[in-house]
Design a protein around this nucleic acid. Structure first.
Length: 545
DNA sequence: GCTAGCTGATGCCCG
DNA sequence: AACGGGCATCAGCTAGCG
């Protein structure tokens, strides 16, 4: 709209005072990545971009197929079944020949955007009422900056000086371990509720420079507010009110969890790295104590990550020991009570889930089968967007067979996939890789020249395409020819022709085989194997089989 | 001259 | 401009081998 208006000489006087829209190139950090976008300001109004809200949402959820409007609308269930879809490349022609159809399409787009905004924006609108930021800024600022702003406001209000941020020292994180690999039956997941904030509150760990004790009272107040919002949401008489209160408590939860991160935030005026270290040390100690207590009770602990763990409860004594068994609910309750009893007052243990089966692969990488038969895949090695779709599908199918007791069907499945590749029955969408640019193309070329990074297929293709790619943009590609360097054989996915498929079949079949080999020992064992024993048997090798 | 194995960088994910 | 801990992949390098 900005470009069209400039071209036609139409002033976009959208300000409440009649002033014009202003826009400028900006970049922002969303979790691990930087995106380039155009930031706008209009006097007296707030521009909140649903595309950015989508990316913030996805930081935690990581379940969006893409950030495009159509995919988003379908994902959130707001796409109407009779909406108009038009192929983008035909839009100029349709505009000429059938403008009404184009307008219907545009109207559907606007309605979907509005519906997405109604889902994704209320949490920020609520925050804007609690923070010394306007609505638009509330969306764009990070959580630690928001905590800092709350402290700043209180100190200024009381006429007190603001300390300078301390320079950073290393902070150790949570305890993570994998004790068993392979297939487990009847798995429980317990976790400590709000581990770090609870430690801060119960142990009184707050920034040393916060002489007024603002952080401590803020955290306590936010926790109280959150719990009452949560209770009110449960009792809310109608859907609208429930959604509002639900958003409120979600927002508080995020802010509450940011207090720990704030301690180690290098730009925070009241940061305190030593305090951050005490919080994580206490967290490691609590979780380790849970592991020890469970093992003493005869449970098999599978994996541990920061504030929770997966385990198989002790089998009833007798000959069935070690065999999957239906749990005795009373015994289970006794075990959980015993577990909770070793935690200090104010630290709550929660039974977070119960799973008929689990496949434990590596730290932070596992698959759960829930009681409804749904498969939950966790970990970068198993569900990363950096893995081609066919690998993720292969894994999903294999893990489902493995966890539902049909592992004898796995070899047939693996063969079928190979045959599909050999017969070019697999479309490009399934074997292309999609990467998001972190650097600008210029920055990439500089790093290459100075030897600080290696060539990457995605950037090389973007450079060859002569299109203006920006950080945050994505490119999809596949491997066509042979050669020693895989990246040199890459081609844009858009250039793949189903009538003349030129993908490197050998390369992809090789990938299928590597995939199978990776999991084969665990599939064949069809049970748990202790990592300690594995390591004792093969102490030198990193790979265990 | 070849290769296994290591290293560093990148990208993505878990809590 | 929240934190640390992990895994997979790639290209380049190097020690060790024949």
């Amino acid at each position: 709209m900005e470009a069209r208006a400039r071209r036609r000489g139409v002033p976009l006087a959208w300000g409440r005072d009649g002033s014009a829209l202003r826009g400028y190139a900006a970049r922002m950090q969303i979790a691990d990545r930087t995106i380039g976008y155009r930031r706008y300001s209009v006097a007296g109004r707030h521009i909140v971009d649903t595309w950015i809200l989508a990316q913030f949402y996805d930081v935690a959820a990581r379940d969006l197929p893409s950030y495009g409007l159509k995919d988003m609308a379908r994902h959130f269930g707001v796409a109407s079944s009779d909406r108009t879809y038009l192929p983008p490349e035909d839009i100029p022609r349709i505009f000429q020949e059938d403008p009404d159809r184009l307008m219907a399409y545009a109207r559907d787009d606007v309605m979907e955007t509005l519906a997405l905004s109604a889902i994704l924006s209320p949490a920020y609108f609520v925050q804007a009422q609690a923070l010394p930021f306007d609505y638009q800024t509330t969306v764009l600022r990070g959580n630690a900056t928001k905590v800092d702003a709350l402290l700043l406001r209180e100190y200024l209000h009381r006429g007190q000086a603001i300390p300078a941020p301390q320079s950073g020292v290393a902070v150790a994180g949570g305890y993570t371990a994998i004790l068993q690999r392979g297939v487990a039956r009847h798995v429980l997941h317990v976790d400590v509720a709000s581990l770090y904030p609870s430690i801060m509150l119960t142990q009184g760990i707050f920034p040393r420079s916060d002489r007024l004790g603002v952080a401590a009272s803020l955290l306590a107040d936010l926790k109280t507010f959150r719990l009452s919002a949560k209770a009110l949401a449960r009792e809310a008489p109608d859907e609208t009110r429930r959604a509002l209160l639900g958003g409120l408590q979600q927002t508080f939860k995020i802010l509450i969890n940011s207090f720990y991160g704030y301690l180690a935030f290098s730009q925070g005026h009241w940061n305190d790295f030593e305090a951050a270290n005490r919080v994580t040390a206490e967290g490691r100690q609590l979780v380790t104590a849970l592991v020890e207590r469970l093992e003493a009770a005869g449970a098999t602990v599978i994996e541990v990550d920061t504030d929770g763990l997966y385990f198989v409860p002790p089998a009833p004594s007798g000959p069935s020991r070690g065999v999957a068994s239906a749990a005795d609910p009373q015994e289970e309750e006794r075990l959980l009570a015993a577990l909770a009893s070793i935690l200090p007052d104010g630290i709550q243990l929660e039974l977070d889930g119960r799973y008929p089966a689990m496949f434990s692969y590596k730290m932070k990488n596992y698959v759960l089968l829930d009681a409804r038969g749904k498969l939950v895949v966790k970990g970068s090695g198993l569900r990363s967007r950096g893995i081609e779709l066919f690998q993720r599908q292969w894994m999903e199918e294999v893990f489902r067979l493995l966890l539902t007791g049909r592992r004898d069907e796995i070899p047939t499945l693996a063969r079928r996939w190979e045959e599909d590749f050999r017969a070019h029955r697999v479309p490009v969408k399934q074997f292309m890789k999609t990467e998001t640019f972190q650097d600008s193309l210029v920055a990439y070329q500089e790093k290459l020249k100075s030897g600080t990074r290696n060539p990457s297929a995605a950037y090389e293709l973007a450079l060859r395409s002569n299109r203006p790619y920006q950080p945050g943009d994505q490119v999809s590609f596949y491997v066509a020819g042979g050669g020693p360097r895989v990246n040199e054989a890459a081609k844009l996915a858009a250039s793949w022709d189903p009538a003349a498929p030129d993908e490197n079949t050998g390369y992809y079949i090789g990938k299928l085989r590597e995939l199978y080999d990776k999991f084969r020992p665990l599939i064949e064992r069809n049970g748990l194997v202790s990592v300690a024993e594995e390591e004792a048997a093969a102490p030198i090798q990193g790979e265990l089989f």
